[in-house]
Nucleic acid binder design. Structure first.
Lengths: 252, 252
DNA sequence: GAGTGGTCTAGACCACCCA
DNA sequence: GGGTGGTCTAGACCACTCG
């Protein structure tokens, strides 16, 4: 038949759109620049706004775009590398830290945390911290510390607030650290985390769970929530790997 | 006024829906069970199908659900822990590995990879592997190996295929490994990766970039793509941390 | 062929930001 | 108040799986 070759597997519109936009971002836009609004863009590409949004969502997921209600869509800067492991293992709060303690309260941890700590329904110290990088808040963390891990903690001075949090971290550092485990997985920001990270609820986050082992048991457990759009978590000896994922990878 | 307390910040429907579904999953469903189809569920909750889908998408992102076209929506098993770092650093392919070599070709790496390897527009060996865990394919990897890192590689036997890939890995192991860096970030599966991982294009993935240092330079660079829905990447001494992220965390 | 999830449309209204 | 992105609707058709 005289027809031209049909696409055997027609690509969804939003994927094609994503590719087109991605190339335009590389060649015609610079970091921080504002894109046309969604209605205009949709009209320009001849698609419904919902379809355009599907493409924008993925580009935002990949850290290429940043969208803010009432403001617009801007070209995102490259992700910031955030060092998680520097080879040696240390207690939280050691040295001149990038973490800022916020406050500390007593709380019964959720079941899976309680199971790891072996505390049952007992109350533990719950330290809340956040992590800054390049002037932006990139992560929040909840650190669960059983009372048994900080036996000499004075209950009197600094009953709450940042000072209390620092006191708990200081006491924790008196234990000898046997080792630490980490796990990274994808999650979505809950309402609280979203507010603290200046994102909407449901935004993708990287959840880093750290278990601190001392004296043959789990002495503390941290659950840190990193903004997945802006962060690249780095592990290892040298902190500056500058490779980014490139969806169209092979050049050959 | 005699009205009951209004919600000060009315929660979006899809978020409320997500919470309701999440609780139902915990209490009324078991792993592998099939949920009612989307049209029925939407009708049951009195929302449009698109709104329901927004809730399902997030639950799938969090690894709670698994959806397959033509089949249905099922309750997902807990994420599998996938060990990335065991403390000691090793070349890829060392020991009885969970990685299966697929093939090996020669290709010019994409610009950022070439920059890290310092190879310019020179062709390198490109080894493709995939990783199995519990009978499922959980990751694919592209490993870029400059010719200079495997000088004694015979070009004659096993010119391609899995045997060739194994030969490259074997030669690589003759170098002394100085160190290795890793980075983890969120990405979305390209068309190729999606097919190999049995997911749709655009599915969220965890991209792990590994840089192998030897003889004062980058001797190889791996870009691994893990299914974000089913994997929890673990690092550290003991491989079995069984803590999962819990969106409603504090029980206080 | 029947049923599933995936894509797409053309609208509407809302929450938020800023001038 | 005007413009932005975020939510929501009620449809339609398509690609896929399976009996």
């Amino acid at each position: 038949m005289g027809t031209t070759q049909l696409e055997t597997v027609p690509e969804p519109k939003y994927l094609h759109l994503k590719t087109v936009l991605s190339e335009a971002l590389d060649s015609e836009f610079s970091v921080g620049e504002i894109l046309p609004n969604e209605r205009d863009l949709a009209a320009r590409f001849g698609v419904a706004r919902a379809t355009l949004r599907q493409a924008l969502e993925q580009l935002e997921l990949e850290g290429r775009l940043q969208r803010r209600r009432g403001v617009g869509t801007t070209v995102a800067p490259p992700r910031v590398g955030v060092a998680l492991g520097t080879g040696r293992q240390t207690w939280p709060g050691t040295g001149d830290d990038v973490w800022q303690p916020m406050d500390c309260e007593r709380a019964v941890p959720p079941a899976p945390v309680a199971a790891a700590l072996g505390t049952g329904t007992e109350e533990v110290h719950l330290v809340r911290r956040f992590r800054m990088s390049q002037g932006r808040r990139v992560a929040t963390e909840l650190l669960y510390v059983p009372a048994a891990s900080v036996p000499d903690l004075s209950a009197i001075d600094a009953p709450s607030g940042p000072a209390r949090a620092r006191a708990v971290l200081r006491e924790l550092q008196r234990l000898e650290l046997d080792g630490q485990d980490r796990a990274v997985e994808l999650g979505s920001a809950g309402a609280e985390d979203a507010k603290e990270l200046d994102r909407l609820p449901g935004s993708p986050v990287l959840v880093v769970t750290t278990r601190f082992a001392a004296e043959g048991r789990t002495a503390a457990l941290g659950v840190a929530t990193y903004r997945a759009d802006t962060c690249r978590l780095t592990f290892g000896d040298t902190p500056d790997v500058e490779i980014h994922h490139d969806p169209e990878r092979r050049a050959s």
